[in-house]
Design a protein around this nucleic acid. Structure first.
Lengths: 196, 196
DNA sequence: TTTTTTATTGACCCGTCAATCAACAAAAAA
DNA sequence: TTTTTTGTTGATTGACGGGTCAATAAAAAA
């Protein structure tokens, strides 16, 4: 069966399998065999391509982050006003792709793992900073710098918090409700001010 | 050495050891031996008093929750107006006791574990519901029911989000800043309305 | 004093899992 | 065709960790 040029396909399959495995288990306590099995290969192959388990997890996190980044850039592309930019960033975080039990479970699990892994911690900081600056890029057009900063911080925290509560399946059932909450907050903070 | 009446002391010591171990590791991946060692006993004794590891973790979570509840009741006791009640609930969640790296790490870890353990999930739902109703008890004195409900939901999410961001050690350095953010949100939502 | 209850542990078993390795197969290169 | 490269796995190892158990010791009860 061995065909040539399998490496990229296998890598992708293994990363996808990792996400779905984590999503189902709800934690990073998934075995290499479980992941490999889902990808239709042996655990030895997973080690062959990724080395240690840590690296597979890290690659998976990178993949999730890259997708979020791509989604965000796409959404920002079709936003014209500052206000629209802010809403676009918020919307992306609650899009069907992102606001799904599996993805959320993965985020949560990675947050925990970040306490142990410096590499993972660095990755998550990149995400946090990027979210902040994306929000800020819209907000600075509407609010004074200091105020914009504070609102960006609160919005980011609000988003993270809604993710957690979603994971618990308590309150905040769907994405629409979550977006409404965030937008409601933004509206009260931005009302009166006209965008540039 | 065996003295009588050790059980409650050992239980307490083991739970404390569990919290500090989780706090240090940043996850529930702590061994029974590690915990027992910290408590100054053998792992066999930990099993003797708590049975399986799950039950020790569950007992630990219950303990944390009980402390939070006690703190909250105390704080609510000295609050007179509705507005003060809301602030009191917020303040407790960011008190020195609660808003500490170890405790936060424990919370996070438990959130993840809740995906696997139904018992833990139930506990966390109790917490979520209690937080919501505590906030609501103050808010209903100021806002119409539906609006109060929405604000309570957002505030709870905001608090959870700030916890996560604190765990990442990114942004939101201290409790004061966190409280300021939440209070700022509340102020904008409640401004104009006079409390009862 | 004998007996029972409570406290406690070291040693051990067993399952799980990450990681390794030798071996095999197919394609590509020589 | 032979050789090398690429893909792949089953079997194995070694470590780790949860859980059990028999044994010990002190105190309390009989």
């Amino acid at each position: 069966m061995p065909k040539v040029g399998m490496e990229p396909l296998r890598r992708k399959a293994l990363i996808d399998a990792t996400i779905s495995a984590i999503g189902e288990r709800g934690s990073l306590d998934v075995t290499m065999s479980e992941i490999a099995g889902r990808a239709g290969v042996s655990s030895a192959l997973a080690h062959h391509y990724f080395g240690a388990k840590d690296e597979l997890l890290l690659a998976t996190m990178r993949h999730i982050l890259a997708e979020l980044t791509a989604d965000t850039l796409r959404a920002l592309g079709s936003a014209k006003t500052s206000r629209e930019r802010v809403s676009a960033v918020v919307a992306v975080n609650f899009s069907d792709l992102q606001f799904q039990p599996e993805t959320i479970a993965a985020w949560l699990a990675f947050y925990v793992e970040a306490q142990k892994s410096a590499a993972l911690r660095r990755l998550l900081k990149v995400y946090a900073r990027r979210l902040h600056s994306n929000l800020l890029s819209g907000l600075t057009g509407i609010l004074p710098r200091t105020e914009a900063d504070r609102v960006a911080e609160a919005t980011a925290a609000l988003i993270d918090g809604l993710y957690i509560r979603r994971a618990l399946k308590d309150g905040v059932p769907d994405a629409a409700t979550a977006i409404a909450l965030v937008e409601d907050y933004l509206e009260t903070k931005l009302s009166g001010r006209s965008a540039q």
